[in-house]
Design a protein around this nucleic acid. Structure first.
Lengths: 190, 190, 190, 190
DNA sequence: GATGAATGAGTGTTCATTCAT
DNA sequence: CATGAATGAACACTCATTCAT
């Protein structure tokens, strides 16, 4: 499968994300996605092996964008708190600007498809962050608990808070975001 | 006249939860659920208006059980930390013992069906907890931030941590659970 | 099947006619009819062998009522034209007053169920009318053509004209009815 | 890209008409029609939006054919009686040759689907006939009654007479047809 | 490379009917 | 007599995918 038309592929991804956000995973059929992307259902199979492949690829693509965004201007020479705050802010920024991408990834990661993704590959991108956390632990600035627990308190709440379904009444201005980070930092700092 | 077979309804619910956990929301068709419950597809429609109703009812049922479990032995005369720790432990206990129920509810709350549930009704059960948090805020023991942020740091991490998909390498013994609560408490305490 | 509750049977017939007129033959299911009649689907099978039997019996019942109404005050001593006019008026009267019954019979007689009815039994009721027609033919007052043709011109137009679906813009007052009969009479008279 | 197989569509229409005539409207399911047409049920939905669309389209198609046949060699310069006789003969001819098409249309026009057809569009084809009738009225050759009544006496009996279900014992040779027309003409002429 | 036609297998749901009470 | 529970079979329709062009 030699890919000719990059615009076509982007149209497909865009249509996929859009449609999944609008009508959900279940209802987003191949033919509907194709129609939305102004493409024949058959064309879709030139770019992707099958529906699964399309959904997974879209997810991986988004995750890459997210990790890149989160680690933008990552400067490990700064104090731990500042580093993490920067990442925290980047996350919010990204989610706010790309709510649809984020929503898609949320739906995806709670679907049975998740099991089909190689999560190690995805976590690889967060390596610098893990290194900083480890350094923080070594320097007795951050609590010595497994990474999973640390990230559960730093990043999982971000996702929760920025999920409009779960936090219907919350308006996310800068002040709130900073306040929320205080909780995150208090949680992990020694 | 035959009377409604309560065992049959329970078999349906059980089959639903089981199947959704095994093959996911999308693939769990009415006929598959019926087959699993050793029941005709038509029978299912005696107990539930349609598939949506079945899925939602199952979810609400689970949520009720969860809230009851979380607030077991809720004693608001104790110190704030102890109250929350009790709730925290209850949550872990419940999730550990009813992993399948919990998994179902996780999948559900990230599906488009969520929008169809009256969340206010569900949150009502957590009223005592919210009251305690408010008292904590008033007494300057807990940070004065919106409830959503507080619960995002107390309970959302529980769910994350107890999700075996996300935390594959973590073994949840009592020690770890207590440690994790320390982070939660540090996050919200003033 | 010993019939106890005549009211129940009437409720079933009434519900059948009503429902068939509202939602058509296709959509009128046994359970819907039962619900409309405030009766269990199973009860229906006490009074009728099956759905077919119910529909056919209802039709026959209606046809009997129609023939009785048409031949009301049938006086064969009067002139041919007057006799037929009386029948013609009776028909209009009945259809106007029992439009729902008539509609049902129309739908029925165009359904494949018609083949299951013994039409000879039904036509038997019209025997007096046929006798009059025959007498008219013998006395050279009415054209000597097969009965089917005669009735096709006397009574079939009645049904057509009184079908609001086919004659949407026609308002049936007495004048029009009399005019219409003139055509019928001119058709068959010698 | 495969091109739409015109034979396939014709097979579908043919199967629809055939089946509806054999087992009736109610029992003619999409899958049965598809099987009869040697086509997948899914294929049917390429050509028609849904079952309703299939049935309606088939009806409209038939009606067009009928109107074309009826007005064949329509010559309004001839005497009124001859014009109408021609139309009358055409009708019989068509119905005799296309009994199945005609039967289908009869069933259809008495089903609840009728309401979904734009009858004005269909009647449009009969415009020349209506004009002739109007001219006949103006010239005092035809009775001055609403069109609906006129057609009820000219054409509705044709349909009745050519319906083998209703006229089981009648053999339609040319003589009978001419006789029958005499009644029709006597009915409407002044 | 790209397409719409084509499909068998599946979807959620309702059906006419029977059963145990 | 009368019932609501129960069901296998069928319903209209959509699915992911392949095929011929």
């Amino acid at each position: 499968m030699r890919i000719k038309d990059i615009q076509k592929q982007e149209a497909i991804i865009f249509a996929t994300v859009e449609l999944v956000n609008e009508i959900g995973f279940v209802a987003s059929s191949v033919s509907k996605i194709a129609k939305r992307a102004n493409v024949s259902p058959a064309t879709l199979y030139i770019y992707y092996k099958n529906k699964e492949d399309l959904l997974i690829s879209t997810y991986v693509e988004i995750k890459k964008k997210l990790s890149t965004a989160m680690l933008k201007n990552f400067d490990e020479s700064k104090p731990f708190r500042d580093i993490l705050f920067k990442v925290w802010l980047n996350s919010f920024e990204f989610i706010k600007k790309n709510r649809s991408l984020y929503q898609y990834s949320e739906q995806f990661s709670n679907s049975p498809f998740t099991d089909l993704v190689n999560h190690d590959d995805l976590e690889e991108h967060f390596e610098p962050l893990f290194k900083v956390l480890q350094k923080g632990i070594d320097q007795k600035v951050i609590k010595d608990v497994p990474f999973e627990i640390l990230t559960a308190f730093i990043f999982y709440p971000v996702m929760n808070l920025s999920n409009p379904k779960l936090c219907r009444n919350l308006n996310f201005n800068k002040e709130i975001v900073e306040k929320a980070f205080t909780l995150a930092w208090d949680a992990i700092k020694l």
